[in-house]
Nucleic acid binder design. Structure first.
Lengths: 224, 224
DNA sequence: TTACGATATGGACAGCGTCAAGATAGAATT
DNA sequence: AATTCTATCTTGACGCTGTCCATATCGTAA
């Protein structure tokens, strides 16, 4: 182990020296928990540098492992991105359900949801982009479990829309599905304009989201 | 010209044979109109294969020119994408102004606009993605003329929103800017969900856009 | 002890954007 | 008509990417 090794590879001679002063005296050939490390580091990279600056090689390097090691834990880059996106859905789901449990008034509940949805989207913009962007859904291919997670999140949203319609917060002139789709599209569009860098001045956001809430709610008898 | 040429390049010998049966007997060293050819071919590639499958090398190859030739016409890939996006804005602008000139009733005019906006977005989804996506605005950098084009398109939209507010088609509870921003965000969001592959079934689109129109218009006294 | 499966490695390949140096052609100038 | 200039096009090179392959090592089960 802690020794000088000499390998003969055809025409090259390599010498590996294991320095006993290195951080850990135990030199693990196996990383131990590479899957998790990869996901954590990948999250950090996309948070700090954007999703287009995440490369498998850079990631492997950051974790301190050879460039092909990640491929024993994820089929390919797309698979890794799918897992990140899936985690995003679970986080978002948790957020939503905890909000619903708070048992706010319907009015406040929806307002809070809009703000929470938008702040999640902007604060985790790179994850949001994976969850709802073309990188996976169009350029790549969503994993089955990702499809499942997104479907469940959507279903949960539609159920809630149905309740909000019952309380005359959202429009009642169509099915929960259609109202859910269009309402979500509106929020998504607002989020995307900021996430994609079309709008930069985030001081406008609060006014825009306030107005969006008015747009979405003012179909009901009780105006906001 | 129409001859066998022998070049001695250090250690390689290349023989170019100009076949007189080729389409054009004149063999141009200069392409002639490479800028336009590049833009046309690039449009075709992104239309057929998506924006992520456009590479400078593939493009050069398609046009029949060496891989670095395009760099004499566009500073870099970003610059080429900017020109494509800018053309998109001009097209869209033309579309909008021709619709306004038709002098439809305000109600019909807006409805038509929504349908036109969405059909443009979906039919030219890759160009739309360049115009309003992160590839240029976040991952890349918009050219000055692109910024100008987008600003002008937006200004034109806000002016029209103002008129629609005057005719009580759109909500009047905020400035044209805010109403314009949120209304646009809603349309944009709907477009993106289809463009990015989140929604695939386009038979739903017409119902969704109908409902979106209702959402956006029903603030006024005259319901749709 | 041995065999095996999970995990890690380096080599290799094809692709990418783009810089730098050199070649060529057509137009402008002498 | 000869020369110079400039726009255009070329090949070579560099460093980056995703990922396949054969190989090496480790922990564990037989």
């Amino acid at each position: 182990m802690d020794s000088v090794k000499i390998e003969f590879n055809f025409d090259t001679v390599k010498i590996k020296v294991f320095n006993p002063l290195m951080k850990s005296s135990k030199q693990h050939y196996h990383h131990g928990n590479l899957t998790k490390s990869l996901l954590d580091s990948a999250s950090q990279i996309i948070r700090e540098e954007g999703v287009e600056n995440l490369s498998m090689r850079k990631l492997a390097d950051k974790v301190g492992v050879s460039r092909t090691a990640p491929y024993h834990h994820f089929k390919d880059k797309n698979a890794l991105l799918c897992v990140l996106a899936e985690k995003g859905f679970h986080d978002q789901q948790k957020m939503l359900t905890s909000l619903i449990k708070q048992n706010l008034s319907a009015q406040d509940g929806f307002k809070q949801y809009v703000h929470l949805y938008l702040s999640y989207a902007l604060e985790h913009s790179e994850i949001y982009d994976l969850m709802y962007g073309r990188a996976i859904w169009k350029a790549g291919y969503p994993s089955e479990s990702l499809k499942e997670a997104s479907k469940q999140t959507f279903k949960c949203w539609i159920d809630w829309v149905s309740k909000l319609q019952g309380q005359h917060i959202l429009a009642t002139n169509n099915t929960p599905l259609r109202i859910g789709q269009t309402t979500w599209a509106s929020l998504h569009g607002l989020a995307r304009l900021f996430i994609d860098g079309i709008y930069l001045d985030k001081t406008d956001l609060s006014q825009m989201s306030e107005q969006m809430i008015k747009n979405l709610c003012s179909h009901s008898s009780t105006r906001v």
